[in-house]
Design a protein around this nucleic acid. Sequence first.
DNA 1: CGGTATCCCATTTGATACTG
DNA 2: CAGTATCAAATGGGATACCG
Lengths: 165, 165
Amino acid sequence: MTQTHNQPCAIAQALNIFGDNWTWLIIREAFYGVSRFSEFQRNIGIAKNLLSNRLSTLVEQGIFEKKNVGENGTRYSYHLTPKGAALRTPLFAILLWGNEYISGDGNEAVLLTERNTGRQLTTMSLVSESGEPIEPNDVRAIAGPGANQEILDKFENARNLKKQK
Amino acid sequence: MTQTHNQPCAIAQALNIFGDNWTWLIIREAFYGVSRFSEFQRNIGIAKNLLSNRLSTLVEQGIFEKKNVGENGTRYSYHLTPKGAALRTPLFAILLWGNEYISGDGNEAVLLTERNTGRQLTTMSLVSESGEPIEPNDVRAIAGPGANQEILDKFENARNLKKQK
DNA sequence: CGGTATCCCATTTGATACTG
DNA sequence: CAGTATCAAATGGGATACCG
């Protein structure tokens, strides 16, 4: 698509930013410590003009911060803002899913581990206010304060579908 | 891009499937209980040929299961497989990020709640083997058994970058 | 209903060249 | 180094028509 939708659902909104694969890969590289234009380019294998576009958008969106680090103004670094760093959660979620369902056990190219124990981490979960992990079945999606009629209808419809069962 | 990369990293692999926004939206709809071709089409506003393509790919990938539910073979339903249902984690992660950093507090179109208490869920976390949520700073990404030289280099490089600080 | 086939247009892409 | 400019080629997009 590439074309923007205007659904109020945050998923659709977020996808307007991250619909492009390059963008995810750029952010992944940032988590690995990459901050320079040429490094992104080399590691990802992206064309310069595309990288330039994507980085500009990400800076506009407040996900990266561009700093001048050159002695004479010819070098820049791109670092994740808090907003950008918060993308670690979706990114890790995708990684764990891919490890389990694409790579498969024993073939993972990248693993997540607990720093202290070195143990592998394979599970990600919603956490309650009291700090307890919540089972997927105990989670409900509901319409929020920013919902429009379309979303209200959708949840109404979802309720009806469940009743029919 | 659309073009497939062949990096072994599970993120890149997963993006080969989900690089397309339509795909995420289709899966989102599936979580809302949608299972029919025409419903997907109407709710997402996607062209028929595109929907057909995307669904075919998703069935091939083992994310949806296509069942014949028609009396005379003219009706089908698409349901998430366990592999597909596991995408709830990345999807929720994206939703929470979008709620916090795009919609903002009080403007969320869709919220996640705990079924029993009705309390809003805003946090997602990696969970240790012993069932404890892990802080982001306590997580390390390391090269796994399926890593190639490129990935090993990347982590080597990341270590060097940290030492410099 | 659940698609497939076809067409045409807008966009995206990557390569190359160029610049401060 | 960190881009911008340009451009031909490929791709993705939606609309329409058609089918079992």
